[in-house]
Nucleic acid binder design. Structure first.
Lengths: 232, 232
DNA sequence: TTTCTCCTCTGGTAATACCAGTTTTACCAT
DNA sequence: ATGGTAAAACTGGTATTACCAGAGGAGAAA
């Protein structure tokens, strides 16, 4: 390990160190990580910290622990960086997040068309109604987020919802960490409400292509606002 | 904790126990988890195991550790179940995975159209070429997987790729755990090659809609094969 | 009332011992 | 030499203890 930073939890540093070790070292998928005791000595940290790091790497799918056998490498850490806390979030990555959201939500919109119930359809419309009432502030922001989450929920696919949740949490992290507010997209607030209305209607009427088109339109607008905001 | 199973690692059980504790207990987002020492006593396990569990929950975004303050709950565990090892994989979830893949890969195909380089385009075609040579066996299966990964890579969006990787690893888990082979889709092997050819061509010629349509077609075929396979 | 100190809460690290599977080694019998 | 078996030396898993370090509250001093 390069050097120990006092401000950051050690187990996080160890997690990164092991990741780099896997990445740079020629560990192929299926090979064994050095034993916990060996790592603990090599990195000059206690075995506890090593184990905590391994537990993290295990749950994101990089490792697999086998009692008595060793910690087996499943895949390169760079393949799973996604929504981990350790991943540093750059200003560029907001674009990646938005594109991924577009992917998830387009599919969710299509699926919701055929799977949404009558009551759920009404709930979706309620969100649009609340947007109309709310002013363009943090409350409106929460309603917006709620709409998209609900749409994913009504797709009937829990996996889509969980991916969307991960992405939205990432966006929140960016807002918190970097301090800049991507939600100045609200200069198009009225347009945005219209789009949500479109999406909601399309889903309820079971027009998958229109619903997906609405989602695409939504993100087109977000990207536009983001670009304008960036150039200021 | 209900009871300790001797065969399963304790820290996994603790992870589940804490998840249930958050889910059933009326812990709202932002509230504090009981202290590690309290949990350790309550669940009758050592603090190490509690901490390892917390580390896992932290990295998937359920918790947030703050030195001196406590472990803060960020969201309900059921919202992030996705690709965690702990998540039990059911036969139904294969449908969710495939739908999510369709979402990711449709977007990836579109993006690849505008971002792929000439060399990358050739590599993509190579995969199709290898499919033609290979027989319908495990090798072909690997080539297929490789094609889709490359497409995601050439989308220029690392996040899309990492999500796809997570999904594919899940599919591998299912194949391993449940023992049934979803890859009997290969009864349509020739059709499948044609589809990949279509997708590849569309991407190289920069026809986003056709590329996305190809992906949709691919999954239509997989779903069909899956259904037929299920009814046997 | 305000401010500062200190005590006690929290998570973070370390070190140690031992339990429980796996793999290797070494030895013995064939 | 070969094969099988038992012991030894790995591996991860769990428990215990001690102490460090940040955060916050309680109470004393200004």
């Amino acid at each position: 390990m390069p050097e120990r930073h006092r401000n950051e939890p050690l187990h996080h540093q160890v997690t990164r160190a092991i990741q780099e070790l896997i990445e740079k070292g020629s560990f192929k998928s299926g090979s064994r990580l050095p034993s916990e005791r060996a790592l603990s000595e090599q990195l000059q940290v206690c075995r506890n910290s090593v184990r905590e790091a391994i537990r993290a790497l295990e749950i994101i799918g990089v490792l697999e622990s086998h009692h008595g056998e060793g910690n087996i490498i499943r895949c390169r850490p760079s393949d799973v960086m996604m929504h981990t806390t350790a991943a540093k979030i750059s200003r560029e990555s907001i674009i990646e997040i938005l594109e991924t959201r577009r992917a998830i939500e387009s599919e969710a919109a299509r699926l919701a068309c055929v799977r949404i119930s009558r009551e759920q359809g009404k709930i979706l419309q309620c969100y649009v109604g609340e947007m109309l009432i709310a002013n363009c502030d943090k409350v409106a922001m929460a309603i917006d987020a709620g709409f998209h989450r609900k749409m994913a929920e009504y797709s009937g696919n829990r996996l889509l919802l969980s991916h969307l949740n991960a992405l939205m949490r990432n966006m929140e992290d960016i807002r918190g960490t970097a301090g800049y507010d991507i939600f100045s997209t609200y200069r198009y607030y009225d347009t945005m409400i219209e789009i949500h209305q479109e999406i909601s209607d399309a889903i309820i009427k079971d027009y998958p292509e229109e619903a997906a088109a609405g989602v695409t339109e939504y993100f087109r607008m977000v990207f536009k606002a983001w670009d304008e905001n960036k150039n200021e």
